[in-house]
Amino acid sequence: MYELMIQHPLVAALVALVGLALVFGAVLGFAAIKFHVEGDPIVDQIDKLLPQTQCGQCGYPGCRPYAQAIANGDAINKCPPGGQPTINALAALLDVEAPTLDEEHGVESDVKKVAYIREDECIGCTKCIQACPVDAILGAAKQMHTVIVSECTGCDLCVEPCPVDCIDMVPVPQGIAEWKWDMPAPTAEQLKALRASDIIATDRGERAA
């Protein structure tokens, strides 16, 4: 055997390579099974970051389809309800540069809104009920409809189908319970304000300018 190896280096090399391949293959295969990570598929992770308004402003019929599209390489800046925070979160997740919101799909609104049906004008056509992606409108044919405010995502998909235009998007009232402190103004802005008021008297050059 040894002799054979010595005399035929090609055979020796082949044997060695096959042996190595077998050993490492076994190790890798074992590792793949043993240390298999049952991670969230990327679509789920993206879907978790989306605001779930199901508004379709991104051009997909709901958040999950858009998540799927992002996973397949679509742009991450098509979600106006989520706005920049969502884009930033998606960018962090996907490890890409965070773009600004694509204005084509709408603008980010600071104020959270919910749909409100002017109930005495409602004719009970159920069109809005069919349009609502989260079943947040209550009513029956020929009966007055109303919005379950706590379930409304403010997607405004119900506004357009209403034949009598009795649905408004009203801002969610911000009471004392919802109030919170704002972040302090950034230092630069604070300084600009100060400069305008000439508090830094020693800053002559700046004042002259």
């Binding site: 300084l191 800053d203 700046e206």
Partner: peptide
Amino acid sequence: MNLRSRPVMF
């Protein structure tokens, strides 16, 4: 600071 248009003396 001047280039960054910040108050220099501050």
